[in-house]
Computed example of a mutant assay.
Amino acid sequence: MKSNPVYVFAVHAAFVAMSIAALFPFLLLVAASFTDEQAIIEHGYALIPERFSLDAYAYLFSNSVMIMRSYGITAFITVVGTTLGLLITTLIAYPLSRNILPFRSFISFFVFFTLLFQGGLVPFYLVYTDLLHMKDTIWALLLPNLLTNGFFILLMRSFFSLSIPGEVVESAYVDGANELTIYYRIVMPLALPGLATIGLMLLISYWNDWYNGLIFINDGTLFSIQNLLNRMLADVQYLQQNNLSGQAAAATSVPISTVRMAIAVIGVLPLIAAYPFFQKYFVKGLTIGAVKG
């Protein structure tokens, strides 16, 4: 049966329109970051800058040493956190997908319970500062996101249950493989689409995380890139609003509107660069938990 050409054209046109609508804000963001501050004040935001300017990036990279160190911290946290997050998530999710696990339903409910109820900010802060003594340490940026992935555990459990054939596991048992061998040599290679999906989510959460740095980190040498850029922007706004003598003149010369845009561009570019490497598996992983015919 041939497809109706009018219908095919309409579908393609709709997807092109949605793609343009999704891409337009980012293009406007990039264009604004290269626009002169006064041009934005006079003419507003536009895809083609009224007057081209690199003032925003010049201001940011006047602190290039701090930015590069923060990039390094963020990259380290993202790589280590994503790797450990995938390991812990799969080590919990795979046993939960097996019917032979004792107390399987209770453990699954315990994981699900953490999605519905949390202790709140004060207990969260006290546990990591007074009990675990992680204030102003690199662990404060790593562990909180690592240990709050109940949704990812349930997602991977569904993937293991629906996508890993039980016959494959049983045949491995017959051949004398133990649980660790089955997990490492059979289950993990078959779970690449699910791992890529969860890995991308973990990567984004670690790269964009600013909240843990805000409440746990006061040491400037441990700022992630998100915390550093937000702190730089907050400092400029503070000087402008309070009109502090001497420093106010320097602050008023900072292109505050375009700096905001440049901060967003610098923060998002590494994620855009990383996405093509995940796309092949991410599309497959979108069907985790879907009903199969």
Rank of each mutant, 00 (worst) to 15 (best):
L229I: 06
M1W: 14
L27G: 13
P255K: 11
I217N: 02
S62K: 03
G199I: 06
W207N: 09
F223M: 15
I100K: 10
K280R: 12
N230A: 06
G220I: 09
N99H: 05
Y206V: 09
V283I: 13
P49T: 02
M1H: 15
K2P: 15
L84V: 00
D36I: 03
A46F: 00
A177V: 11
N212L: 03
Y57A: 00
L286K: 14
A75S: 02
S19L: 15
M188A: 04
M1R: 15
N145H: 14
L202V: 11
I77F: 00
M68A: 03
F110V: 15
N178P: 07
I288S: 09
S245K: 10
M188I: 13
N218A: 05
A46G: 05
T78H: 00
T89M: 00
G166L: 06
T252N: 08
L96T: 02
R185Y: 03
V122A: 14
M1Y: 14
F278V: 03
L126P: 10
L91V: 01
I198F: 11
V268Y: 10
S33F: 05
Q240I: 02
Q237N: 08
L286E: 14
R231E: 14
L195F: 12
P189F: 10
L269T: 14
V174Y: 05
L200D: 08
I107D: 07
L126T: 10
L195T: 06
S171V: 08
D36S: 05
L143M: 09
S253C: 06
K292P: 04
F278D: 01
P193I: 03
S33P: 07
L91H: 02
I186C: 03
L146D: 03
L54I: 01
T35V: 07
L86P: 02
A46P: 02
L91E: 00
L202R: 10
A262P: 07
F103S: 06
A177P: 06
S53A: 02
I107M: 07
I215D: 05
F15I: 13
T252G: 05
N149T: 15
S19G: 14
P5H: 12
Y7S: 13
S19K: 07
A17K: 10
L27C: 13
F278M: 01
A234D: 13
G166P: 01
F113P: 11
Y206F: 08
M66S: 01
N208M: 13
S19V: 07
F15K: 13
I198T: 13
A22L: 12
L200P: 04
A274N: 06
Q38T: 12
N218P: 02
S3F: 11
N242M: 10
H43Q: 12
N212D: 11
V283A: 04
V16N: 11
E167V: 02
I272T: 07
I100N: 09
L91P: 02
F117E: 08
T78E: 00
L147F: 11
